[in-house]
Design a protein around this nucleic acid. Structure first.
Lengths: 133, 133
DNA sequence: CCGTTGTTCAACCAGTTGGTTGAAGAAGGA
DNA sequence: TCCTTCTTCAACCAACTGGTTGAACAACGG
């Protein structure tokens, strides 16, 4: 339960029902009952989902008589996007550098092929093949 | 096991060990053994983590003799960022509109107070936060 | 005051997850 | 061939998850 914030946000959004709830709360605030309407599960189950979202900081709840209107907190998304952005950028930069290296390799290869040398220098080529942009 | 791609990616990144692995693979490809070095857990456990990342499409593996070099696939990140971006943008747009509505409401309120009309026009106030067209 | 509505709490259950250990495959090197 | 290294498979276990039902709590409306 006392996991780090990033883990909580990611695991909160790992459930399709909870993602759907987030999608609907992005359009409009709603009470627990309203939210639970479209789903085949019990209201209690939806209430649990909302607790998870709240614990992750994605949803806040106010009070209106017996009702508990739920509101989407958009700022928490930034936690994820900065994390993701950081490593995606790193990986892409690395990919760019790899491309440059490969370009050099290819140049070498054509030159090497030109004077008919070793044939199996591609043996180690598997790395980058999957990474096509 | 046959969950939708988005769920798989989110839940793969919900584990701090797996996020750390991703962070390290963003810097350089590595074998299972290399990856498992810094962690207190067994190599088998790390192998399982890599299976999860592979199943989520975040990591691909090639073959180099007995070794299985792991490579980070950056494109899958886009699945998440587009999903996140969409609802964050919606929520923020809604927040902007709400701000405008509140500004209008304040103006109306002061005017209404000026000519002393009906007092319960706020009865239905809860809904509108979401309903701002 | 009592009944109704909206929400949560508590106990329970089946399935998944994150780890363990032990054994087995796969491939190189002596 | 045999030994060693890297990796995965299989069985097991404790803890967590996502759902259930039944009861309780909170607040309005007669």
């Amino acid at each position: 339960m006392t996991a780090d914030p990033l883990s909580k946000v990611f695991s909160a959004l790992a459930d399709p029902t909870r993602r759907d709830i987030v999608a609907r709360l992005a359009v409009a605030d709603a009470t627990v009952n309203e939210i639970s309407q479209p789903y085949a599960m019990s209201v209690q189950a939806v209430s649990k989902h909302l607790q998870v979202l709240e614990e992750a900081g994605l949803v806040s709840r106010s009070r209106d008589a017996q009702r508990r209107p739920c509101h989407l907190e958009a700022e928490v998304f930034d936690l994820m996007t900065t994390w993701i952005g950081r490593y995606r950028r790193e990986a892409e930069a690395r990919y760019q550098r790899l491309d440059a290296v490969l370009a050099n390799l290819d140049a070498d290869t054509t030159r090497a092929n030109a004077d008919r040398s070793n044939a199996d220098m591609n043996r180690n080529r598997n790395h980058q093949t999957g990474a096509a942009s």
